[in-house]
Nucleic acid binder design. Structure first.
Lengths: 219, 219
DNA sequence: CGTTAGGGGTAGGGTTGG
DNA sequence: TCCAACCCTACCCCTAAC
């Protein structure tokens, strides 16, 4: 193929770091021309230096936020194993998968109000998305949100439910616009868990009421 | 763990094949954005598509073209970039890219047909209910539900929320159709409590999610 | 023009979990 | 053990800005 993929050697990385120390980050061409480094970096272009520095920086400081979450999860993991199998998760559900939530505080409804502001818009660039949602929805979402993470965020934002949205609602919202794989519910559960773990979502316990048994009677 | 390894479904594989036929192998992002496939492949990233295509190709020609490619490269490799270093490497390239496109898995054209049906979005029926409620609702409810008890039952039944309805939603539902006294919220809370106490309602704790604050950034 | 920043994309080698 | 799914990294492309 065009580029046989030259893995960066330790010497090259060292030279790049030294070059940045000497000339500053961003002075790629300058570093390349410096005889002190050109003997090591002669195979690289200024763009290569820029890209490599970008990669190195990602690893160094932020840990790439994605990896951080994954690692954090790995630590926490190990313990649970609470399956959650319950394959035919038909329409019942509701109670069991939310067992992680502590007994609901009776006065929740009190705090409910304050959540109103947070959950409100906060739109950013995606404002457009939410408007278009009304009409062209499927296409637009497909463009801006290719992965489940984004879909969940879009769903919650689009649903605009004052207190937040529960798993069933989020799932239905997504399924209305896309084909859903058989294990979608499980996937969604897992995603919600990780998004909560890495701080992208906040999980609340709220109280809901259901009519007591009573067959089909209309109250 | 967070990401439970999403196995590829038949629908997804079919969509991928169709996408490759339409846009070509290597046009992963393009395939992903195509509304014809995005409804099926929305859970996948362009990299996922690439990886899956690689795996499928491996399976197709028994030999694992992946390994074959690697071996072939090792032979050709070694030739160092002869000079060209002085100029930006940006504009060169181009030549060898096109002819290297992998032969697609052999049986593709066979399964092509089945991919056609799966694309469109699928609407849910439940929307109807909510619309009807908007119009006829008020009258009907007024007849059958004179007391708050009944109103609450009507609200919960009318809302038809899969997991049950929370207080805010119930309250809003009622307020939309009737004048509400200033202390309505308090009243509602009390009623919900007694209805729960005497077994007419069942109270659950469920989890809901909200977007995390996070300065402006939308995920 | 040339260079850089930065977003985005693809290929291919490597890793890992089921 | 094996391999499908996934991750990591190198390279490429583009555009805006200077």
């Amino acid at each position: 193929m065009g580029a046989p993929k030259q893995k960066w050697t330790q010497e090259e990385e060292a030279a790049l770091k030294a070059g940045v120390v000497k000339h500053g980050a961003g002075k790629w061409r300058t570093i390349l021309k410096d005889p002190e480094f050109s003997t090591v970096l002669y195979l690289r272009s200024n763009v290569d230096l820029k890209d490599k520095w970008r990669n190195m920086s990602v690893m160094a400081n932020g840990w790439g936020s994605r990896d951080k979450a994954r690692v954090a999860l790995k630590r926490i993991h190990q313990v649970p194993k609470q399956d959650e199998n319950a394959t035919a998760s038909a329409s019942v559900a509701v109670q069991s998968d939310e067992e992680t939530v502590d007994a609901m505080p009776a006065e929740i409804s009190a705090d409910m109000q304050q959540t109103l502001q947070i959950s409100g818009p906060k739109r950013c660039t995606s404002l457009v998305n939410n408007h278009v949602l009304e009409s062209v929805c499927a296409t637009v979402i497909a463009i801006h949100a290719c992965r489940l993470d984004n879909l969940i965020m879009e769903a919650i934002a689009g649903l605009k439910e004052p207190g937040g949205s529960n798993k069933t609602t989020i799932g239905t919202y997504i399924e209305e616009q896309f084909w859903a794989p058989p294990d979608f519910k499980r996937l969604l559960s897992a995603k919600l868990k990780t998004l909560t773990a890495n701080g992208k979502l906040i999980k609340f316990a709220i109280a809901v009421w259901q009519g007591a048994v009573v067959g089909g009677a209309c109250y």
